[in-house]
Design a protein around this nucleic acid. Structure first.
Length: 551
RNA sequence: GGUCCCAUGGUCAAGUGGUUAAGACACCACCCUUUCACGGUGGUAACAGGGGUUCGAGUCCCCUUGGGACUACCA
């Protein structure tokens, strides 16, 4: 037994040989497509950039008939945020993105390559750490870690000053006896990689989005296992990805610069390298004009829960993201207006290399189109679902008279050119409240900027009530309005009015506006004919009477 | 400081050596029109700068500039 093996045994006396795990987790024989994973750490509530990356990963697996894994990377106990993983589970669930393999916090496991929670895999990591020590590619370190971020920042400043390309640790050449002395003292140890980097060597790897990247090879004795016995992301993701048979690592482009470290570890372990796909980061442009990563601290839309609270249909968010991921999505959508986004297959080459700027206006536009294609029933169900969680009074209101609500949502819908004014469910109350008597709230007629017609408003409206028939066809209905208006001095045709403005007090459109205002309290509403039909004579009469108080 | 990534209108973008430099969103105008929408037509608006290579450069190379990421016993 050589010196390295003796140290390894001293450090990890009771650990299985790493080959045990290599044998236990067999290669996936029947999977031809890409095996990808989403590996969130529960350090914050789900961020849109995080979701973006997850969504790319998911699609890559789906589009190639591969496997999509969700793995919880909970190795940073200090930064762990309670409830964060539950939010991730909830968000994925609501968006209908189901991993093929996963583990939930209440212990439900799906897949043969688990556990899928990293803190449940510590023995595995220790085996591989022991192996690296035993072949002299890693070593125990007894130095003191930095306590906080300030210390790190301060240390960084001095490092920048001398710009040393290599960073070898003081403990890298400890003998067995020296190690034993520390251990016997009861000191805790971390494991560091004994880098073969010299600050001159370079590495090249291929990124599926950016192409070939050449960078400085790692030349730091990086931490493989922290002194609390838990490895950092750097080490465990490699072992997990290997054992779980991951083929392509999809992650944010902030990881490009740490890839050389990962490569050295992979090589040291004797694994095959993975394919990499570093996706761009979603950005914002704040006041100062400089692009920056979208952040939950400043941008409410960065938190995925924003879309639930505001009631965006999940398809809207997904399609917007697809639009950012692949430039060919929009054209595909135009050519396939009826298909689900799930039918859209994009290649990895379609993914843009540029960090896109998040555009809420564009998202809203996509959302308007999606909602305009829904049936009234679908709208009703969606609004109801939203209201149940975020607007109790509207939940009651809608549920109270479902038929009425559906008829209301059906106005200007299910036609060739449907109305497109809803992009999120939370705007429904403001948009539709006047359909309910308790919210019918007209103000003084002068406030509506009508032509002079308010002088005869009451008589006209009263007479309209006598001729209104909810069974009239639209043409008949409109003709009646024209005739009635003519009696009071309104032009029957707009063109006629424009030609000879002096002869009339307004035109038939003005009569409509008056009726519209009287019955809804607004100058802007969907189709008036449909509204009147839905309301019926009695309701119209009541509203007219209330409106008279403001004349 | 160092390393890496990125660079076409306000935004998303097409473009793979020869184009009048697409399209979408937003904006503006007009048309349609009972309001608002929808729809239609048109418009404003871009290859960051400088050098090369080439008969020819948005496209290839170099430099500059600008922006971003990383540089932890975080991920």
């Amino acid at each position: 037994m050589n010196e390295y093996q003796k140290i390894a045994d001293l450090l990890y006396p009771n650990v299985k040989d790493y080959t045990f795990y290599l044998n236990k987790y067999k290669k996936r024989e029947n999977v031809k497509g890409e095996v990808t994973r989403y590996a969130p750490s529960p350090t914050g509530y789900m961020h849109i950039g995080n979701f973006f990356q997850m969504f790319i990963s998911y699609n890559l697996a789906k589009n190639t008939n591969g496997v999509f894994i969700r793995r919880l990377e909970d190795t940073d106990r200090k930064r762990e945020k309670e409830g964060a993983f539950e939010v991730i589970e909830m968000v994925m669930d609501k968006f209908g993105i189901y991993p093929d393999e996963y583990e939930t916090l209440n212990g439900e496991i799906k897949g043969y390559y688990g556990p899928y929670i990293q803190t449940e895999r510590l023995d595995i990591y220790h085996s591989f750490a022991k192996y690296l020590v035993s072949i002299g590619k890693a070593f125990p370190c007894f130095c003191k870690a930095f306590e906080n971020k300030e210390e790190i920042l301060k240390d960084r400043e001095t490092k920048f000053l001398d710009n040393d390309a290599t960073e070898y640790d003081a403990c890298r050449n400890l003998s067995f006896d020296e190690v034993k002395k520390h251990i016997d003292n009861g000191e805790k140890f971390a494991i560091r990689l004994k880098t073969s980097g010299d600050g001159i060597k370079r590495v090249t790897f291929t990124d599926l989005i950016k192409g070939e990247i050449t960078a400085n090879a790692n030349a730091k004795d990086v931490i493989l296992v922290k002194s609390d016995g838990i490895p950092p992301y750097t080490f465990c993701h490699i072992i997990d990805d290997k054992l779980m048979g991951v083929t392509t690592v999809v992650r944010g482009e902030e990881y490009i610069s740490s890839t050389p470290v990962h490569l050295e570890i992979i090589d040291a372990l004797g694994f095959d390298r993975f394919k990499y796909c570093h996706n761009p980061l979603i950005c914002k442009i704040p006041e100062n004009g400089n692009k920056r990563k979208i952040s939950k601290r400043y941008d409410p839309e960065a938190d995925m829960r924003y879309y639930f609270e505001n009631g965006y249909p999940i398809e809207s968010v997904l399609e917007y993201l697809l639009n950012l991921i692949s430039s060919s999505f929009e054209e595909w959508r135009r050519n396939n207006p009826e298909l689900s986004w799930k039918e859209f297959k994009f290649g990895i080459n379609d993914i843009t290399a540029v960090s896109p700027i998040f555009d809420l206006v564009k998202l809203n536009d996509i959302s308007k189109n999606i909602i305009s294609k829904m049936t009234a029933e679908e709208v009703f169900n969606n609004v109801l679902k939203w209201a149940k969680e975020y607007n109790n009074s509207w939940y009651e209101l809608l549920l109270n008279n479902k038929d009425y609500a559906i008829k209301m949502f059906n106005i200007d819908r299910n036609i060739e050119k449907p109305r497109k004014d809803i992009y999120k469910w939370s705007s429904i109350p403001e948009l539709y409240k006047y359909f309910y008597d308790e919210f019918y709230n007209p103000s003084s007629i002068e406030d509506y900027d009508l032509p002079n017609n308010y002088k005869c408003a009451k008589e006209l409206l009263n007479e309209y009530l006598t001729i209104f028939d909810e069974n009239d066809a639209k043409d008949t209905w409109f003709n009646k309005i024209k005739e009635l208006g003519a009696k009071y001095g309104f032009a029957k045709e707009v063109k006629e009015f424009k030609k000879n403005k002096e002869a009339y007090i307004g035109h038939c459109g003005d009569v409509c506006t008056l009726i519209r205002v009287a019955v809804t309290g607004r100058t802007q509403t969907p189709d008036l004919y449909e509204i009147l039909k839905l309301f019926g004579k009695e309701k119209i009469k009541n509203r007219f009477n209330k409106f008279y108080e403001f004349i």
